[in-house]
Design a protein around this nucleic acid. Structure first.
Lengths: 245, 245
DNA sequence: ACGATGAGTTGACCGCCATCAACGAAAACG
DNA sequence: CGTTTTCGTTGATGGCGGTCAACTCATCGT
């Protein structure tokens, strides 16, 4: 998500009615007229309760979903039952991009808390993107950004140690909370240790131990799902030079 | 890449001049007229020698590249120098999608052998995609497919053991060679053990050992960079039930 | 052709994280 | 409100793959 929003963009966000559709509705260079047209895109809204699936693997792809409130995880499963969390999404982020490729979803999207999404019918989006250049450009950027995000996760999973993975994870969450106007220092984890571990390629015990370790080192405070970052700089430094103990 | 090409598509491929632009030039439902227009897209061609960079990290993004001949790796680097291979690309696949997001490339693309690419100026592609619905749809699918591919790599890195990772890697390569009309049973690795290891989150020694292990088990034959698959089924089975030894 | 250099193999040892297990605490349920 | 279940923490132990090292074998350049 873009952090530094020029003033003009803030206006656009307001113009885009009540919807926090940051990623799709905030392209630079859209006229007010275009913004109005984009509102046509938003079809129904959908509310989900905690643990409810927005869509399941193998279900047919019809729409993208912009998260209006709440948060989600996406998970992929192997035939033998092994499951992996491939991402955590929060307000303003898009879900469903995985389905464009084949017309079937390859991941499931599960609400981590009671949430609400805007349904964006994909056929309409494609049609409108053909007419509004700025929308097309922005949509491509969103797709590419997801590719880039996943590449950095590959890097994390391929080369980093447990401590580094957790540090990256916490700093990333903090940044995203801050970008949404929440505290980037104190926040509540929406997911369990097991889900964090699954995302980071670690076991839940390792996640728990590493968080405790961070606390002992004075880097963070942990109280169940509540996290407080106490020393961002050392946390950041840790990514390049793991703690020697 | 799509394997089952309906007859009409074979014609299109021929129509798309000499170019093997499978992913972009083979959308279903393009009229002959549209195909002709797509040819406008192809600007210059570029030849690269082994080890030469098609583009580097942080270089400005201007174009996508369709591989006409040869193969590439894409790599990402951390500040501390750690490097990871994020993908191997071969004939007919697209390079450069990572740059759309920010206008700067976040990976480097390096030729694994002497290679040739078609340069597709991105601005032109976007313009043409606005006019030709089939091209737009196909382009979105290519982007989404890359997202899906990376998700399966995340799964591999997050949950699989060394043996399983290698098995997945070999079977995937075999499938892609086969899809290009080459043997899916006997092929030559274009990359080193170190590059394979980097991609799979393993050290080169582990790659080497595991390949030797496969050979002892009669699953494959290895002679330096030449691989021969001897028992695909057991190789595939191994992914769900690692060898007990 | 021939050294020089990079690539690959194999062995010995070790460390990080998984595994197994027990306990404690919070939250969800009726 | 109390009970059950899920979630989280911590300890003990072990194994997979990393690390260090030595050696062999291609490949490439001059």
């Amino acid at each position: 998500m873009d952090l530094q929003l020029p003033p003009t963009l803030r206006q656009l966000r307001v113009a885009c009615s009540q919807c926090n559709l940051m990623e799709l509705c905030l392209p630079v260079g859209l006229s007010e007229e275009d913004v109005a047209r984009i509102e046509e895109l938003i079809g129904t809204r959908r509310k989900l309760k905690r643990h409810q699936a927005l869509y399941e693997v193998r279900s047919s792809f019809q729409a993208l979903y912009a998260i209006r409130a709440g948060s989600f995880k996406t998970t992929i499963v192997l035939e033998d039952g092994r499951e992996q969390v491939t991402g955590f999404q929060m307000t303003g982020e898009l879900l469903g991009l995985d389905g464009i490729s084949t017309g079937l979803h390859v991941v499931s999207a599960i609400a981590l808390e009671d949430s609400e999404v805007c349904v964006i019918e994909y056929a309409r989006l494609e049609a409108l993107a053909r007419e509004i250049q700025g929308l097309q450009a922005q949509f491509h950027k969103v797709l590419s950004r997801e590719i880039v995000r996943e590449q950095s996760v590959m890097m994390l999973l391929g080369t980093m140690r447990a401590e580094e993975r957790l540090a990256v994870f916490l700093l990333n969450l903090a940044q995203r909370f801050a970008a949404r106007g929440f505290s980037g220092t104190e926040f509540r984890l929406r997911m369990t240790r097991e889900e964090i571990g699954s995302y980071l390629g670690l076991k839940l015990e390792t996640v728990s131990r590493t968080l405790s370790h961070f606390q002992e080192e004075g880097l963070i405070e942990v109280q169940h799902k509540n996290i407080r970052l106490r020393d961002r700089e050392r946390l950041r430094a840790l990514i390049q030079a793991p703690l020697s103990h």
